[in-house]
Design a protein around this nucleic acid. Structure first.
Lengths: 148, 148
DNA sequence: ACTATAATGCAACTTAGTTGCAATAATTTA
DNA sequence: TAAATTATTGCAACTAAGTTGCATTATAGT
């Protein structure tokens, strides 16, 4: 994606255009998998990103609904951007995330994101009385094509 | 649950019977929600549990398949025991966890566990080619009956 | 180009969890 | 029931991930 397109995305989310935001946005848009702070630092080594600035950049992306984050079992966070979310963004900031599944590979620990159908989950409904569900996420554990 | 029953459970999972394990097991069996290290420490204040010992106890429970843990968005872990898992325990140690949903209350941050039907998840299947799914977990976000 | 405001980068800090090791307690065997 | 064996406990020190405060620098609107 070219520089002007990236800038346009930032502006659509009411974010100022900065070097850090541009390169992080570009990387996340290209990545098929959700990335951790340290993966991003490594991938963007040439930019010599400051640790704190990167955390703040990622959190900003999440706050405005441009990216989303997943907590892993290793107690850190992975960040990802759905190109769908970027395209469907509306300016009323009602970003109730589109439902998605995260596939977690047991071999390489990578997390792949998949958009999924907006669908009911088949629970023992009696047990869920009184719980109002606003959003859901599905986590799949297994082996990814690369590791198989 | 009485002391003898608790001891019996520990023995079934090849764990030695100790004071710490008994009181933690008792608490988790009673709890409807998954509990964090600090919640457990508070609830069992009278026992003055050592921080490290409690972490090790919880991890041991998870390793042998007696309990399971959930990573939260606040990057800590919650621990829970399903009475079902305890009852269905087999001694071959093939504890592939039964599928379950976690309901995360946005208001009080409590996590409730629900067993769910062993069911296929309706994904855009084309996108999942090459990924072999061994286990899945569903996360529901919303408001619990207490906070509503 | 000037100004107001927001983002950046550094140091110090916090929080959750881990490691090493000596002391203690639980089970096995005699 | 006592001794021996082995696993668990408790303390101190440590690590890893992320946060806070603040001075400096860059962005966007006039």
């Amino acid at each position: 994606m070219n520089d002007e397109q990236l800038k346009q995305i930032l502006r659509e989310f009411d974010l100022k255009v900065t070097k850090v935001r541009l390169c992080v946005l570009d990387l996340l848009l290209q990545s098929r998998i959700a990335m951790s702070h340290s993966q991003i630092t490594d991938a963007l080594e040439a930019f010599e990103l400051d640790k704190v600035t990167l955390y703040r950049t990622l959190n900003t992306f999440v706050e405005v609904g441009l990216a989303h984050k997943v907590a892993t079992d290793e107690r850190n966070w992975l960040y990802a951007i759905y190109s769908e979310d970027v395209q469907q963004h509306n300016h009323q900031h009602e970003h109730h995330e589109s439902p998605h599944a995260h596939f977690i590979c047991e071999a390489c620990d990578k997390i792949y994101c998949f958009p999924i159908e907006e669908k009911q989950i088949d629970l023992k409904k009696a047990e869920l009385e009184g719980f109002s569900i606003k959003q859901h996420e599905i986590r799949l554990h297994g082996t990814c094509p690369v590791c198989k």
